[in-house]
Design a protein around this nucleic acid. Structure first.
Lengths: 79, 79, 79, 79
DNA sequence: ACAGAAATAAAAATGC
DNA sequence: GCATTTTTATTTCTGT
C-alpha cells in the first residue's frame, strides 16, 4: 500500500481519537456543571464527591469479590 | 421543603453524576480501543500519543493567540 | 550561598532518593521471593495475589468510611 | 500435614507479604518527602526526577557493559 | 518471547 | 500558589 494511503489511515485514527477526547472533555464539563448546580442548591460538594467515590469503591469491592469467586471455582475445578 | 424531597434531589444529582461518569469511562475505553486498533495495524502507539498531545498543545497555542487578538481588537475598537 | 554548596545540597538530595529507591527495589525483590517460596510449596500464586489485593481493598474501604465519618462530622459541626 | 497447619502456613506467607508491602509503601512515602523537601529548598522536582532517571539508565548501561566484559573474559579464558 | 493486564510513577488539572 | 485529586504514561507481571 502506498505511503499516502498509509498516512491517511494514520490521520483518520488520530482524528477519531481527538473526536473521542473532545466528547470526553464535554462530559467532564457536564459533571462539573452538575456539581455546580448542586452547590447552588446548598449541597456540600466535597461531601458529594466523597459519596460518589465511596459508591464507586463499593461497586469495585463487589466486582472484586465476584472475580475472587471465579478464581476459587477455577482453582477447585468447579467450572 | 421536606427532608425526604431534599434527599431525593440529592440522590438524583448523584445519579446524574454517576451516569455521566460511566459515559466518560465508556469513551475512555473507546479511545483505548482505537489505540489498540492502530497498534494492530502496525502503528507505534507511544508515538501516536505524542502526536495527539502535540496537536492539542498546538490547538491551545492557537486558541490563546486568537483570544489575544480579540482582546487587542476590542481594545482598539475594531470589533 | 555559593553555587558549589548549592550543587552539593542537590547531590545529597539525589543520593538520598537513590538510596531509598534501592531499598524499595530490594523489598520488591523480597516480595517476589516470598511468592516464589509459596509457589514452591504448592500454593497458587494468582489466588494469593488476589487475596492480598482484596485484603488491601477492604482496608481501603474501612479507611474511606472513616474519612466519610469525619466529613459528616465536620459538615454537621460536630468537631 | 493437616489442612489447619497448611492454612497457617498460607496465612504466614500472606502476612509476610503484607508486611513487606507496607515497608515498601513507607519508603515510597519517604521518597515523596525528599522530593517535597527539595521543592521547599527551591529545586525543580520535575527536573530532579529526570536526573534520577538518567542516572539509573547510566548505571544500567554500565552494568550491561560490565556483564559483556565478563562474558568476553570468560570466553577468552582470562578469568 | 510477547500480548495483554495490573501496578506504579509522573504529569496535569482543579479547588482552596 | 500550593496542595490535593485525577489522569496519563511507563513499567512490571502473568499466561499463552
Amino acid at each position: 500500500m502506498s505511503d499516502v494511503i498509509q498516512a491517511d489511515k494514520l490521520r483518520l485514527l488520530i482524528e477519531r481519537i481527538e473526536r473521542l477526547e473532545e466528547e470526553k472533555k464535554g462530559i467532564a464539563d457536564d459533571v462539573k456543571d452538575v456539581y455546580g448546580e448542586a452547590k447552588g442548591q446548598g449541597y456540600d460538594v466535597k461531601t458529594m464527591r466523597k459519596v460518589v467515590a465511596l459508591r464507586k469503591l463499593d461497586k469495585h469491592v463487589r466486582d472484586e469479590a465476584d472475580a475472587m469467586m471465579d478464581i476459587y471455582r477455577t482453582a477447585l475445578g468447579l467450572t
